[in-house]
Nucleic acid binder design. Sequence first.
DNA 1: ACGTCGATCTCGAAC
DNA 2: GTTCGAGGTCGACGT
Lengths: 256, 256
Amino acid sequence: MGLSVKVKPTLAEATDLLEKAFRGRNLAVVIGTCRVDYEGRASSTLESGERILVVKEDGSVLVHRPTGYEPVNWQPPKCLMTVRRDEGGVIVTASRAQPKETVAIEFSDISLAVTGNLADSGEFALHVTELQMKQAMLTAPDLVEPGLKPIQQEKSLGEAGFTDIFAEDRNGNLVVVEIKRNAATKDAVTQLQRYLDTLRKRINRPIRGIIAAPELRKSAQPMLDSLRLEFVAVAPEKCFSALKSRKDMKLSQFLA
Amino acid sequence: MGLSVKVKPTLAEATDLLEKAFRGRNLAVVIGTCRVDYEGRASSTLESGERILVVKEDGSVLVHRPTGYEPVNWQPPKCLMTVRRDEGGVIVTASRAQPKETVAIEFSDISLAVTGNLADSGEFALHVTELQMKQAMLTAPDLVEPGLKPIQQEKSLGEAGFTDIFAEDRNGNLVVVEIKRNAATKDAVTQLQRYLDTLRKRINRPIRGIIAAPELRKSAQPMLDSLRLEFVAVAPEKCFSALKSRKDMKLSQFLA
DNA sequence: ACGTCGATCTCGAAC
DNA sequence: GTTCGAGGTCGACGT
């Protein structure tokens, strides 16, 4: 892996190490006392404290406090990195042009500086996404309702967007199915209604609107009822099983 | 700061170090070769590669690949951490109960293990948020339109939510202002329309709906027009200036 | 606890 | 390049 690790480096040593890392587009991890300023889409200041700085090989920057999932300051990939010694400190800056923004981290003390390259080609796979739920319902429409026949996926409705599934039911009614991977909110109801409004202007046939999701938020029920829309509970796990049981799909599409 | 740093520890040493760190709710940073499995709201697998693991003092967990702003796997604060040796590896798990989910990181090789406590009480301040834009428009309603008189901020509309600003215009019409810090989308239009629908059922007076944002997405324009809503461009910087010029506000409210 | 909404959202895909 | 919607979104605030 080839990491360079310096415990309690002088500020000069740390500057040197970071300088080399930034030039070589290497990973850098620094733990030390710093303050941070950000200026760009918004602006922020962070007073002095002990934090972890991570600069990645693609120029992403993360400043993490000792608690919390999110970085307190950050910068997305492709930043231009600089480092320089200043009176009593080391200043690391990360800038990008679009949008124009800069994060400046000023270390007054550094406990640990690590640089190096990581080799990571391992494949990442996330299972049972909304797309996969749609695929499952397209290949097994019974998950929504017996006798449902998909006509089209993602029917375009111009300004109103796209329906998830456009189908026809047992009785020849058109059906718009709006899929949510998580509990459907009022916004899902609004969205479905928007599709129906648009479609009903175009097509003079009965059209039903169905929300297919693992759950319907209680707050969305009144709106659903008053708009005469329907809700069908579809568990992601069921979709997973439905996909798994299809022999015509490669397992690798949704399994590791 | 008191960091324990082990370069190229044996798996047994690393297990020991992590065990102590987790027990003492200390920070732990590990760089090494691992694979990761996640099971919970969704599920995922990540094949072997070199990554950075950060376990924070509050039980947040981050697994970072060498590129990208986002962690590839993670866990929010308050996780229960465990570590154990296994044939040929060290397995770290982070679990939480609500929702039930677990991340398991299996290291086959560890290049660096760091544990310790960070002292960080530095204050963080972010300037010009949506809240501050609202404050600015409340103290300087001319930012929206000459003669606008705020009646109420955050008028509750029950199930429909809250309006940002509820006001009266020069001509005695009621006005609902929906503020967005970023470019307003169709969702913003929908949201505003929902507020108006609710209000018009309650109040038999002309009510205008205005979206105040730095920009209106092109895709939202047709919907805005057809619903007879209005858009006013309000730059965050103008709001910042408006706040700064108010002598009756403490600068400290929105400056570091 | 659940629901709603903003975010320096980030990310990816479509246009 | 911009625009748009999704996210294991997270996090904050309110009920």
